[in-house]
Nucleic acid binder design. Structure first.
Length: 800
RNA sequence: GCGCCCGUGGCGGAAUUGGCAGACGCGCCGGAUUUAGGUUCCGGUGUCCUUGACGUGAAGGUUCAAGUCCUUUCGGGCGCACCA
């Protein structure tokens, strides 16, 4: 049979769509499988082969699940709000709505050409007002629950151009446009109180099946640490200075304190500080640095000693100086630390530079050369002296602090609240109204969606404000509470909003009265298997788990966690081994591959090229190997006339079914395909094949190469769709060979093999080796020390 | 800096998790078919002074047995909050 892929691929894609065989059904009596892949951002460049790889894994699994009798939901959609589209629109003058529609159309046609079994009746677009109505609705629910707030934060600002700049546009502390010094300016922005969910997001990880490194990255991101809050009394003030520490056991080694330059205590006691101007100058200097620089320049510590206020070490009552330094961040803990130079590297560097005392309180290092951060016996620590474990010392100190009423256990998270806004056009309008009398008021639910108004000029404002601010008609409104004059919020939501709940909408994509029907949610949730890139493990995954958990807490979804299982695919690198990018010109367009080789070859190659989870470079010549394989499969039709089933081939079939079935579940698609290649080699060697065996073979291959196998199925006279036929079963007994080859080792060295029936016992096997003349020379005149026998694998005889 | 992952032929990668390293594919070499190129088919292909020895970034260690476990070391990659 000739493989005319151009004709058959399109034909079957149309027939599948016409018959709707990949549509999820509403039959809730069937077991369900919800497979989810990360929906793409429809950029103008179109898809590259990396997208195809990202979807191919669950594509194969979803197809296998259908063949196993599951009701499968495998949807696709578009995450279409965001900057690239907007910037392209500004550049070309084409409205982002039109750009988005064109890109979605392009992506859709590319996806369809590859033959993915998505349920196209459930496609979603985050920029569709029927969709973002519910994005805004969830935001409103959060606002009601107090999870939305506004706060002031520091941004890069150019005082000359009067514009807020991104980190990229303010490198080296200079404005990219006018080259004047950038300062850090306070700006009012929206936040979602995700930190309130830190513990739930952490504990939720215990109940899900994520890849270990996915879990770990999320744990690190949340960054829970257990420690203590301690209040240090200040001289000359009636207030104390609160710090957070994880090492209260080293309290006797505290010889100074450090606070962030922005710490409010400086302003508060300005009149008692003798060098206030000096402190202010230092603070201004720090403000020029970006957050990035502050965390990177760890080597050279800077700071200024506060003159006029000191602190008292509560452990020993000694007076200690307070410094301001930018190595302490206002955003973590309390913005103030107790410094233990002997046992903390940063404090050590600072103490050395400023000539501050370094007191050893844990034995084990040499504090004259460096800080010692290991464990050891406590010294110079009064009631802690002699204690050898950190845990015990911490407990004793906590008890001491509790007794004095100046400290207690505490928990801190690295995760901060989620800055939730953009001063940009192409995003969901934030449904909040500012009323002079009532303050911030949510747009009423019945007025949602709050539609993004159409604009001719949607470039961002000069002062960094949203372009929506220019629309007076839209901005000016009445307050829903008091009916008075009010103004609409003009910020839009960030890129991550729409993708934080999209997996819920797929379940009931066209519902106008609720975001999804509760019965449907109950049946389909949780997502059984979510596959995507490692780059989304922290942001998107954390954000969407947070939204979902919130919806669970208010009774809107039936499960605490959205995703039962999470895996990740590796990148496809360019043929040069570099990450694919337009600028390097090494991007492979799936359309080109489909044109030349067909979708089946593209699919098989992408899954065969290497370990699914690892990065692998594209190779044009390796694609040809998969083309040969597909053509050899087509050629099977010509030899599948024999009726002589050989026992060896039968066994090979059962082994292959077993391996392919197991490998697909482990996402080891490369070895699954390799097993089918081996089988086809055996078939060609045998030169014979029954029609039933051919049917089994093409059924196994169908999830990988659905078009050719569907065509062959029908050529064999079948009228059904192979794509929803029954997945092959294997007979375990027939996967076991009757005779196995044992490896024979003498003294741990391989000396040959010996064939014996499967299941031979140790004594028989060892006797057989001893009787074999090939091994006799190794035993001559030697004494046996040990005999090792691994059933059906090897025999090792140690002699001396 | 902190955290995590990975180093196997000329190349992509296998190795039932401690049991015959290099499956499968690419590339290459030889042969057949072809007017020729391409295609297809058959055979070969880790290294070496080829009875045999050596080989999984390097060096040690544990073990009857190490790519796999432990220690040290070198090299590469990824993540670390308002760019998709």
């Amino acid at each position: 049979m000739r493989h005319d892929f151009k004709q058959i691929e399109q034909k079957w894609q149309e027939k599948w769509e016409e018959a709707g065989i990949f549509h999820a059904s509403d039959d809730y009596t069937k077991p369900k499988f919800y497979g989810l892949v990360e929906f793409p951002y429809p950029s103008g460049a179109g898809m590259h082969v990396g997208h195809i790889k990202a979807y191919s894994g669950l594509e194969v699994i979803s197809r296998k699940r259908r063949m196993e009798g599951y009701n499968v939901l495998f949807p696709m959609g578009f995450d279409a709000y965001g900057l690239p589209t907007e910037n392209y629109a500004i550049k070309t003058g084409i409205h982002p709505r039109i750009v988005t529609d064109n890109n979605i159309e392009k992506f859709t046609s590319q996806l369809k050409r590859v033959g993915f079994s998505f349920d196209w009746t459930k496609v979603i677009d985050t920029t569709d007002d029927k969709y973002y109505k519910w994005t805004q609705w969830i935001f409103r629910k959060m606002f009601n629950k107090g999870l939305v707030f506004r706060a002031t934060t520091l941004v890069n600002y150019c005082p000359h151009c009067k514009v807020v700049l991104s980190n990229e546009d303010s490198q080296g502390g200079k404005c990219d446009i006018c080259h004047s010094d950038i300062i850090q300016k306070s700006k009012d922005v929206w936040y979602l109180r995700i930190t309130e969910y830190a513990d739930k997001l952490l504990s939720g990880l215990e109940d899900v099946d994520y890849l270990p490194n996915v879990k770990l990255q999320q744990e690190n991101w949340i960054g829970r640490s257990e420690g203590a809050f301690v209040n240090f009394a200040l001289t000359n003030c009636d207030e104390s200075l609160r710090i957070y520490t994880t090492r209260c056991d080293t309290m006797f080694g505290v010889t100074f304190m450090v606070i962030a330059p922005e710490h409010p205590v400086i302003q508060k006691y300005a009149d008692r500080i003798k060098n206030f101007d000096e402190l202010e100058a230092y603070k201004a200097e720090c403000a020029k640095k970006t957050e990035f620089e502050r965390t990177q320049l760890v080597k050279d510590k800077t700071g200024v000693k506060i003159d006029g206020i000191a602190a008292i070490n509560p452990a020993n009552g000694k007076e200690i100086p307070i410094y301001i330094s930018d190595y302490v961040m206002m955003g973590y803990g309390t913005g103030a630390i107790m410094a233990v130079p002997a046992h903390d590297e940063r404090d050590y560097d600072f103490a050395k530079k400023f000539g501050i005392d370094i007191i050893e309180v844990i034995k084990g290092g040499d504090i004259s050369t460096e800080a010692y951060t290991g464990d050891g016996e406590m010294v110079n620590s009064d009631f802690l002296n002699g204690i050898a474990t950190k845990k015990e010392a911490i407990e004793k100190m906590l008890a001491f602090l509790a007794e004095k009423g100046i400290g207690e256990k505490g928990v801190q998270y690295k995760m901060k609240d989620w800055a939730f806004n953009r001063q940009r056009y192409w995003g969901e309008p934030i449904p909040i109204i500012h009323c002079e009398k009532c303050g911030m008021v949510g747009v009423p639910y019945e007025e949602l969606p709050l539609r993004l108004p159409n604009m001719e000029n949607f470039a961002p404002g000069e002062g960094g404000e949203s372009p929506l601010a220019k629309l007076d008609d839209w901005v000016n409104c009445t307050c829903p509470e008091c009916g008075g004059k009010a103004r609409r919020e003009t910020d839009t939501m960030p890129q991550w909003a729409g993708s934080s709940w999209y997996f819920l909408r797929y379940i009931d994509a066209h519902n106008d009265s609720v975001f999804a029907d509760p019965d449907k949610l109950k049946y389909w949730l949780p997502v059984d298997w979510y596959n995507g890139g490692m780059e989304h493990v922290t942001r998107h995954m954390i954000y969407s788990r947070f939204w979902h958990r919130f919806l669970y807490d208010i009774g809107e979804v039936p499960t605490a966690e959205p995703y039962a299982k999470r895996t990740a695919q590796g990148l496809i690198l360019g043929p040069d081994g570099e990450k694919m990018s337009k600028s390097k010109g090494n991007v492979v367009d799936p359309n080109d591959v489909v044109d030349e080789y067909g979708a089946d070859v593209l699919r098989v190659y992408i899954l065969f090229m290497g370990d699914y989870a690892s990065a692998a470079p594209w190779s044009d010549s390796s694609v040809k190997g998969c083309k040969r394989f597909i053509e050899r499969v087509a050629g099977l039709a010509d030899i599948a006339k024999g009726n002589g089933v050989t026992e060896k081939l039968e066994s090979a079939f059962h082994k292959t079914i077993k391996k392919v079935s197991a490998d697909i579940e482990d996402m080891k698609f490369n070895t699954a395909i390799a097993a089918m290649m081996s089988l086809i080699n055996e078939i060609y060697d045998a030169g014979t094949l029954t029609v039933d065996e051919l049917k089994t073979f093409i059924t196994l291959l169908n999830p990988f190469a659905p078009h050719l196998t569907e065509e062959m199925w029908h050529t064999l006279g079948e009228k059904t769709f192979l794509s929803v036929e029954k997945w092959p079963e294997y007979d375990e007994a027939k996967t076991v060979d009757s005779v196995v080859e044992y490896g024979v080792q003498i003294c741990g060295k391989f000396r040959g093999t010996i064939s014996m029936p499967t299941g031979t016992d140790k004594d028989t096997a060892i006797a057989a080796v001893r009787a074999d003349e090939n091994f006799a020379k190794f035993f001559e005149g030697k004494e046996t020390v040990k005999e090792i026998f691994v059933p059906n694998k090897l025999i090792n005889i140690v002699v001396k």
